[in-house]
Write a protein that binds this DNA or RNA. Sequence first.
RNA 1: GGGCGCUUAGCUCAGUUGGUUUAGAGCACCUCGUUUACACCGAGGGGGUCGGGGGUUCGAAUCCCUCAGCGCCCACCA
Length: 876
Amino acid sequence: MLIPPKYNHIEIEKKWYSYWMKNNLFKSIPNDKEPFTIVIPPPNVTGLLHMGHMLNNTLQDILVRRARMLGKNACWVPGTDHASIATEAKVVENLKKKGINKTDISRDEFLKHAWDWTDKYGGGILDQLKKLGCSCDWDRTKFTLDDDMYESVIKAFEILHKKGLIYRGHRMINWDPEAKTTVSDEEVNYIEEDSSLYYIRYLIEDSNIDLEIATTRPETIFGDTAICVNPNDDRYKEIIGKNAIVPICNRKVPIISDNYVDLEFGTGCLKVTPAHDINDYNLGIKHNLETIDIFNEDATLNIHGMHYMGKDRFTVRNEIEAELKKNNLLIKKENYIHNIGRSERTNAVIEPRLSKQWFLKMNDITKPAIDNVLKDENIKFFPSKFKSTYKYWLENIKDWNISRQLSWGHQIPVFYYGDNEDYVVAMNKEHALKKINNFETGKKYKEADLTQDNDVLDTWFSSWLWPISVFDGIRNPDNDEIKYYYPTQDLVTGPDIIFFWVARMIISGYEFRNEKPFSNVYFTGIVRDKLRRKMSKQLGNSPDAIKLIEEYGADSVRVGLMLSSAAGNDLLFDESLCQQGKNFTNKLWNALKLINGWEIDQKKTQPIENKLALEWYNSKFNNTLELIDKNFDSYRISDVLMSSYKLIWDDFCSWLLEILKPGYGDKIDKKSKTELIELFEKNLKILHPFMPFLTEEIYHNIPNSNNSNPLTTSPWPSKENYNISIVEEFETSKEIISQIRNYRKEKNISFKTSLDLYFIPNDNQLNNIEIIKKIAIIDKLEESTKENFDMVTSFIIKNFEFFIPLEDGFDKASEINKLKKELDYNKGFLKSVENKLKNENFVNNAPDTVVEKEKQKIKDAEQKIESIKKSIAELS
RNA sequence: GGGCGCUUAGCUCAGUUGGUUUAGAGCACCUCGUUUACACCGAGGGGGUCGGGGGUUCGAAUCCCUCAGCGCCCACCA
């Protein structure tokens, strides 16, 4: 079989992905095997693959592929999210370009545009995931607005409403006047911005005292319904209970007192505008104040704004400043820096607004989510530090505002009838009609009498059902799929959506199925650039994911991402990581070429060093496998890769292959090659979750490999018993060989020149040349004493003394110097251990095993010192 | 303002309940090397006393206190 000199990732990745798909290797249906399920965090349907997706999905693929190899029924459910706000914003923007205003078209017309947009740009991200090698069961692909998914969301609303958990309330919400929608607290960014603090004069009724009031929002005076001072403020005690006159509109408002007001800030006087400030709203409720809403939906002033009606709030701010100044009501204006809330999506300044919204009561349904994560650890977080964040949020949870003033999404299944305050919750109009007409009122309603609520549900209200709804567990709670696949095993996601999504899925899991949605949550960090900056379009520091795959190959990119991504840690991405991954693929490819190049000599018997080396690597492999399995179980994925990387690069390639490598013109014995290939195949298996394409390709190029089955579905190596002492002994061998290499380097002796190595028999040591030879893996080693040679250089390893005879060019002084240095080191070491043992407290208090270890150290060090001294004496 | 966390080689990080030699890894760096798998390589090497200070202990990178610096989350003061 001819192996190409270079690994062609483009061709080979295409080949194997279509092979896997054609043979349905990622397909899962319920069977009698243990299920292993992951639901993908559904990316935005019209989004494009970025580094964060790559990291996240590579991790999921690694977990899924390993589970598959462990013989589990692995099921990775892919899908996309409709992402109401983001998608609707894009569609609106796109329509604007075409000269269409969203407000000018009907809901149905708008939805048609949105679907066209989705059909055109949607789902591309899933194809990109295939390029990355993701082994999802693509037949299961879901979209949150698919009919069945849609119905599940509505059904969930119905269930919760029936339980009395959903209510309609008046709330101060964050209003985005540009998108004309509410945004959740989490979607508002507070940014320090330059602003002004206006000091405005308010007159007091029946008094000649003026009040100075500081505000950042003079345009809201039309909504003022009180003036508030601190009850302990001596400056204002006398005027409490009187009325103040609001400038320009000349309305009388009461002067009230409340501890909320800060004596130090501004003038200690606060104008209260309950309709437009959350704190004022709370004051309004407390003091039973009137609420005057002065804004229209787009934050222009309404009729209460008098002559400013129809003008934008910021325009009014400027104009009112002028009017106040003209009337001598503006005392001063100061520069002022404060936090201004802006919509994450449109960047519009958020307007606090009183609005009718749908809410989900959270307090009643969070208990299992708290207990099962924090008390019982039925759900584990990796890293566990995120439990504190989770805990804090759940223990301070507020009711969830689930309605959004958008069209793209699941329309709220509430149908108003009669005087428009009565409503029913139903899957559709038909059901709704049936429901009301069943009432005892006797009144018969027609379809035309019903109006569905115009709002849609928060996107997260569909996402929080995802692990259940993808298996249709909301509509059909007893179906075979949900019973088999739920609860799922792992969730891989970012800590930034721990509240939005993770916590809510846990809540919904217990609420709808009385069972956790997943057992383990792996939190990935944020992918940043080398300078720790977030990847962003503006900075242009975000690499094109697909280009990276094309340039380096999917395997290399996957390895690059995994090399430095401990759970929860941010990943400082740099292309050099992909290069490192590519170097590794090259290394493996070349190992294949090397092994394939070795011809077999059928008659040759296995040399002892081959036997020893293979035995050693087998032990080393199993020793590492043990560690790998352990690290997999604790989700230390980058540690797993690192151990495999070192095992294969250093132990397999640099040591094992170098020992087995036949000499010039030589061939390898059959036994060695057969055993070697077995080990090589095992290497491929542990690497397969990380580098699926390369390993699959190599696997099918191994000579003598009888296995025509794909690696993807081959069994994970089972842990065999191994002898740890073999592994340890080999470390000694490595040391001996390293010493010889050092010696060659020091003396500038080429590798072509062979050296004789001798071993000094020592009665106190294991005095068996065979054992020493075994340890040294060097069959030229002979037993001798230094007296037989004029000059030697010696080294001591694990209390065995070895030496190499010297012929000429021997620098006695430097040799002695070298030994003296070693002597000093050992003496220093000895002294530190001796001091420890001299300390009576240590000897008396430390456990016996620890003391014993220290004593042994002394013995070893003393012996070594003796040997070195002897060598020095001999040279002098 | 409230809460959580971090500070170990040039960089990114390990370091499990305090005790395997005088702290590890990968990358980077330096030196040497074209021996027919690989220069996308090989061999070798330098480099940290674990942010500062104090304490507990026979013993601390590991526990406690304190100072300094950094980061994240929540709330957001007219």
